[in-house]
Amino acid sequence: MVAANSNSTHRAAHSQALGLRFLLLAALSIALLVVDHRDRHLDTVRKAIGAAVFPLRVIVDAPVSTWNWLAETTATRNELQSENDRLHDERLLTHARLQRFAALEAENARLRAMLEATEVVRNRVRVAEIMSVSANPFRHMLVIDKGSREGVFNGQAMIDAEGVVGQVTQTGLLSSQGLLISDPDHALPVEVNRNGLRTIARGTGAFDQLDLPFLPNNADIQAGDLLVTSGLGGAFPAGYPVAIVDTVIRVPQEPFADVSAVPSAALNQVRELMLVWIENTEYAVPVDNSDTPQDTSAESAEPVAQPNTENQGEAGG
């Protein structure tokens, strides 16, 4: 409207100012990108904007949560009863398993005490609800409804009933972002439960596949092997199931075997997950690997480089 009656010199000046402003903003964006990519010093800015976006997330999530609430409140008596029965059975089963577990834990503690080894770390978990899953197909990310107010920290492990889901990458005050183990940028240290063979499981960008790129052709691994977190790198507590080996292809002329695994956790179906706090440890390793030493206390006895794996990375992207 205004542009219509402005004269041409005025317009030329305006367009020059526009170009200048764009160049400034472009330079600023590139500076932000470099700083953010090198080392994440922009957490406070992100947190501030994240807090502004939080109400929008709640509104966007409202239809889904209302639907869930409606489905729950209008469930028939039969459905509720059958679900109740199922849960009852499950509870009995898990209780039976837990009894054995308590005995085993006691025995394990006794044996460890006899060996004078360090006490096993105890993990505390807390349930968090997923608010949204990434809107970006190249990043497997989710947002949970717990933030730094509840003690969530960067690099914290997220698990579900079946196995490891991912880790927290960005802590907000009321909500946090997490990276799934299937993200192409995510790698976590695992070991084969059967024989303790240690390696790295890397995300592929598909929800139902992980890659194990650093296993030599003669490594002792076969389809059906359970992979559990090894606890190396410090981000994930040891012993949680990660994936089950799916295919092992050994090509004689290649140095590494082509091994892929299926994640145990239902990565694209979870609605709730658990956050794990490792207790009895005084350090928490953040995700970014720029300014943190590999390990400071409990893990330092374990060497990181393994004799049977050629290449060891670090947890997290």
């Binding site: 903003l25 964006s29 990108l33 953010d36 800015v45 976006v53 970006n136």
Partner: peptide, 24 residues
């Protein structure tokens, strides 16, 4: 461009991408 840049930053935070990517 100023409005677009600010909105782009919000988009970066909302989608968890590199800070400044959508803004640029």
């Amino acid at each position: 461009v100023g409005t677009a840049w600010v909105v782009g930053l919000v988009l970066d935070v909302a989608q968890g991408t590199l800070f400044g990517q959508h803004a640029l």
